[in-house]
Amino acid sequence: MDLLKVTIDNQTIEVPAGTTILQAARLIGKEVAPPAMCFYTKLKTSGGYCRTCLVKVSKGSEKDPRPMPKLVASCRTTVMDGMEVQNYTSPEVVEARKGVVEFLLINHPLDCPICDQAGECHLQDLSYENGRSHSRYEFDRRTFDKIDIGDKIQLHMTRCILCYRCVKVADQLTPGRVHGVINRGDVAEISTYIQNAVDNEFSGNMVDVCPVGALTDKTFRFKSRVWFLKPFDAHRDCDKCSGKTVLWKYGKEIYRVTGRKDQWGEVDEWICNTCRYEKKAPSDWIEEGPRQIDRHSVISQNMYEAGTKFVDSPETLPKKQLS
């Protein structure tokens, strides 16, 4: 197949047709990859909602070099041959993204100290790396009551950023659609059909795809902070899923089981609820060894600086990006 050439923040790569700008940027590396809060490789039609991945297309293609008139969502825009894209090198993009982060935060409770997601929260990372340090919002924040969707998952809608990922999981991974978005605008909420339980073998994956602490594992609720736990790759013979998971342990005790996430925070393989919720004894698992966490959050302990891009000061940009 013909390869298309695309240049992102001055780094060029060749990718097959149909690749999105976001995917191409991820292939180059994290110093040029835009943050993505709603796109999820494994979920069809995901992306386009959050607008954190906006980039500037300064040259459309070799054939039609005109720049695109507006910033585009890199997760939903496919590469053309000869395209030139600016991400962190465009002040316009950096500024727009700051705006998006601010919008995502104005109605967010920021109750990180009592939020189970803290430490592995994409919104924390996003705002730390791309946001502004204070809020200009002076009104009451939108709040919702917590609800249980099924006996294993709690929905804390107040924290939801409406990325639609869990909706796609419910839609694409589980039979019968009982879960979706009701209402619209800034009172839209994730909900289930007449408070129905989301009850099937793969529903637990909604917790893994949720970038924030809106959907949390009830069996892990308030048990520990994630950064006190050590992740281990493990597997078991499972007749429903691949059985390849990560065990989060404190000493010998297994506190929770999740899917294996790659450096972009996306799970490699969906896991079933039996593996996730019912197998918490060490004898249930064959351990493969400690898991390398590539993410730059606090869960990787003292690694926060390593991958951080401070958008405000060009001196601190990774060298590769400046060259």
Binding site: R51, G99, L104, I106, N107, D186
Partner: peptide, 8 residues
């Protein structure tokens, strides 16, 4: 309410 800038 789909996309963040407009919703919020």
């Amino acid at each position: 309410g789909q996309c963040s800038p407009c919703r919020e």
